[in-house]
Amino acid sequence: MTVQTRMVISLKEHPLLLTRIAALAGMMTVFGTVWPVLFHGGSAVGELLVRTHEVEAAGDADFEAMMEADLYGETGEVSEPVTERDPASIAEHVSLLRDLDRGVAILCLLLAVGLPFLCRKWPKVAWLYLLPAVWLLMNAHAGAMNGGKAFAELAVPAQATRWGMFVVLALLLSRNAQTDCIANWVLRIACALTFAIHGWEAFQLSPPFQDLLYATFGHVEIGLSESACHGLLRAIGMMDLLLAVGVTAIHFRPLLLWMGCWGLITAASRPIAMGFDAWPEFAMRLPNSAAPLLVVLLGMPAAFSLSPSKITTQQEPAT
């Protein structure tokens, strides 16, 4: 019996397993992302909007133009006078943006939690899963624009499993052979992007990754030397890059299962290193573990083609 046939049996026995795992991973990633929005300042999109408004309200562009003209002899167009808005009105607008930010975050959380139930009755609402996907994608993009973090510019591909998970959910809940095949490829590409970017960051000795290792090893009272830490990170980076290539090139179950385990280990390393307060960081990274497992469950081949596999063409009722 081949691996893929065993997978089909498994899915027949548990027809809802695939979507349930995806829905749970999606729910957790949104929960982990929403938590800091509600209690730690705001989302990356909210941060970007607030900063843009504050900079505009403070008249920074006009101020810069005036300095460029007066101090640096650059022929900018100076619009005088520079108008600064009343601080109270700025604060009011910022407060409105913060409320909007929280409102959108709560809406996405409600969708992530409520849609699995709604989809049982109205399968077509599954496309509403694209809203949290867009929200997570926008947050990743805003994170890249905000900068200020190591490798921030790579946030969109680095978080591909997070926003990709909701695209996959929308596809899986309107299941047919074609959408399964597309979901298979969305998952594989998302896994490849996330693992490749994280691998690259590790290989480049990303400081936050170094600290995860130092702190984790510190908990078990192993003093990790700098050279050992760097060596370990480079090895991890290489492994992640190879896994990223592997997930798109071959369908090898042990490799996908290891990717799932490794995704879980790296997600768990945050609360292990930082303490339980860092649980949102664990929750938001669960798709890194769930996505390769979903590829296993889908059981579709990894080939450079979008043609549907004959193995998993059974129709599953929308959940």
Binding site: G59, D62, F63, M66, M67, D70, L71, Y72, G73, E80, P81, V82, E84
Partner: peptide
């Protein structure tokens, strides 16, 4: 203090 006054306190780069 208005912006013009603030800028006038700085040294041009020439």
């Amino acid at each position: 203090l208005d912006v013009k006054t603030l800028v006038s306190k700085m040294t041009p780069l020439k």
